[in-house]
């Protein structure tokens, strides 16, 4: 069974926070779902390759085309300054557990 600390580590990786009773309820559900999912261990996959798209990387020709104006591209920005998105200073909290 996946322990509580491991689940909380996953929540930090996903940039999500769970608190109090909500956290306990979530952990219980999470474990139940994982237990059910674990049945795929029994699937007889042998040496099958992992499935990825058969398509090769598809890029269009490098020709300038019509694109959004800076104003259109920034229209939904919560905070902007000129043609820039505004974000707080990038200062990560130290977390040695991940």
């Amino acid at each position: 069974m996946v322990d509580e600390d491991e689940i909380l580590k996953v929540s930090r990786l996903a940039y999500l926070e769970f608190k109090g009773d909500q956290q306990q309820a979530f952990i219980a559900q999470f474990r139940k779902i994982l237990e059910y999912f674990a049945q795929i261990r029994n699937a007889p996959t042998g040496e099958l390759p992992v499935h990825f798209s058969k398509a090769s990387l598809i890029l269009r020709e490098d020709i300038p085309g019509k694109s959004l104006s800076p104003d259109e591209a920034l229209a939904n920005a919560p905070r902007r300054e000129g043609t820039y998105f505004v974000a707080p200073k990038i200062r990560w909290a130290r977390d040695t557990s991940q």
Partner: peptide, 21 residues
Amino acid sequence: IRYGLSCDGGTTQEVHVNTRT
């Protein structure tokens, strides 16, 4: 940061976590 809901936070990481939560 770029679009959608944005909640306050002192650091970029706090903005991410608070917004998504």
